[in-house]
């Protein structure tokens, strides 16, 4: 083999194979598609907030402010500029991580968001761990013998659970575990720095309130998918015809395939879930991003509102993106570009 030609043909072939491989192309496509969506969301937010009647500067300063004071603040905040200019200004800052300063406190929004995201993130993460951790074994047990006792109970519980609004459940939990039994605190948050135990203790009820409907949803989804496969798919019959045990068939063949769909569903959920943290954080007085948003809405701090909404949207888009990509990386049918 000669090594005379400057561009090594093998190298370029490897490169083009990597770039041309279905999964890499797929990842590239999905990432590129996420960017306009996030941009679109930020434009929509900006537009909707600018439609809101009333003068932001007037509202910040209060009804007693003179016209001159209002104009001065408008100039300071750039509110006298056309909406397009203001959006581009904001976008320029946003891509550098500067989401503006709060109208009320004057503090940079980015810093505030960071610490609050951690609280919300922990809450949501905990809810996911609880709900999936419980849903998987319950769904497997239910699908092992469909239409038998365990299955029936799990179906009744899950359709009931899906009909309970999370704020209703939250109040119920507070009523039972905080007011009557006083085993968990009704409100408040203990940061991780003050001990894992105390931290988890303070998050137990809010996490449970979010986790229960999710648990019901995942149980239903997973059980349905497993039963459909066990009763309708030929490869399940093949597996059974090999003489392997029923649990093996369920776990290795049906659950393995269901897990890909579950990942996608979890990713899609994250978007809606973020929204539901607003009300849960309000009920339990947790210093998360949802609480910040609600405060900002009530004080008409539209800079903070804008930042929060965009962050929520980015999280939702990224979650979908990650779910898509995980699905593509894990499921060999997509990985090798057959579909």
């Amino acid at each position: 083999m000669t090594t005379t030609a400057p561009p090594d043909p093998r190298e370029s072939r490897v490169l083009s194979r990597v770039l041309g491989s279905p999964s890499v192309r797929l990842i590239g496509k999905r990432v590129l598609m996420a960017v306009p969506i996030i941009l679109g969301v930020s434009i929509l937010t900006f537009w909707v907030l600018s439609l809101i009647p009333g003068n932001a500067a007037q509202q910040v300063l209060g009804p007693d402010a003179t016209a001159a004071q209002v104009r001065a603040l408008e100039q300071e905040l750039g509110l006298d500029q056309p909406a397009v200019t203001r959006y581009l200004d904001w976008l320029g800052g946003a891509v550098q991580g500067d989401l503006g300063n709060s109208l009320i406190s004057g503090q940079p929004v980015s810093g505030e968001l960071g610490s609050r995201l951690a609280v919300t993130g922990e809450l949501v993460g905990l809810a996911f761990v609880i709900s999936i951790g419980l849903a998987v074994p319950v769904a497997l047990l239910a699908a092992y013998k469909p239409n038998r006792l365990v299955d029936r109970i799990s179906m009744v519980v899950s359709i009931t659970g899906l009909s309970v609004a999370n704020y209703v459940l939250a109040l119920l939990l507070v009523l039972v575990f905080a007011v009557q039994m006083t085993v968990f605190p009704a409100i408040g948050f203990v940061p991780l720095s003050e001990g894992v135990g105390a931290n988890l203790h303070s998050l137990a009820l809010p996490a449970a309130a979010i986790a229960f409907p999710l648990f019901c949803f995942y149980t239903r989804f997973l059980r349905g998918d497993l039963v459909d496969q066990m009763q309708g798919e030929d490869y399940i019959v093949t597996a059974r015809a090999k003489g392997i045990g029923p649990w093996r068939v369920l776990l290795r063949h049906a659950f393995r395939n269901s897990s890909f769909g579950l990942i996608t569903v979890v990713g899609l959920n994250l978007g809606t879930l973020i929204g539901s943290t607003v009300i849960i954080e309000q009920i339990f007085a947790l210093p998360g991003i949802g609480q910040l948003l609600l405060q900002a809405i009530n004080t008409r701090d539209f800079i903070v509102v804008q930042a929060c909404v965009v962050v929520f949207a980015i999280i939702a888009v990224l979650a979908n993106l990650v779910a898509d990509l995980l699905y593509a990386v894990l499921d060999p049918r997509i990985r090798y570009g057959s579909r």
Partner: peptide, 10 residues
């Protein structure tokens, strides 16, 4: 049907 009888993800 060998397409449906083999588990597509294994």
């Amino acid at each position: 049907d060998p397409t449906r009888s083999l588990n597509p993800t294994m």
